[in-house]
């Protein structure tokens, strides 16, 4: 039985990877149309926190990272980003900060400051306290 479950999980992971690839193409085209916020929303949507599969998490992080780095006007982004995205965005900001990559950290800190102003310390706590649905 365990083998079957593993197969299902692997199959599921393949499906998620395919979806992320599809998402990636959509984001590229949104970025070409100069719609970075739409691209970020697309990246954050359907991110796979529930899966244990690290490959899926990494693949989605690459997509989110691409959209995140394309944000130039942080205030402008927040004027069109709905609050429902705040918690998941915060999780990805901490993932970005954990990379230690200079430009990524710079960008994440810039967004982090504005996000904390809007979503409060509660948002930080929700992203740090949740050890089950990690990104």
């Amino acid at each position: 039985m365990a083998g079957v479950e593993k197969f299902v999980e692997a199959d599921n992971a393949e499906a998620i990877i395919t979806r992320i690839e599809h998402k990636s193409r959509k984001i590229e085209s949104l970025l070409k149309q100069n719609k970075p916020v739409e691209a970020l929303k697309t990246a954050l949507e359907g991110s796979p926190p529930m899966t244990r599969d690290e490959r899926c998490k990494s693949a989605n992080w690459i997509v989110v990272h691409r959209a995140l780095m394309a944000i130039k006007d942080v205030d402008g982004m927040f004027s069109s980003l709905d609050p429902e995205y705040y918690d998941i965005l915060m999780k990805y900001l901490y993932r970005g900060l954990s990379t230690g990559d200079r430009p990524t950290c710079d960008q994440c800190l810039r967004i982090h400051e504005k996000l904390t102003e809007r979503a409060g310390l509660g948002c930080i706590l929700r992203s740090l306290a949740d050890t089950v649905n990690t990104v």
Binding site: D87, A119, G120, L121, G122, C123, L125, R126
Partner: peptide, 13 residues
């Protein structure tokens, strides 16, 4: 069959 509502807030716990 309980009916649950989760309310997130912007402040400390």
């Amino acid at each position: 069959s309980p009916l649950a509502q989760n309310v997130a807030f912007r402040n400390l716990p």
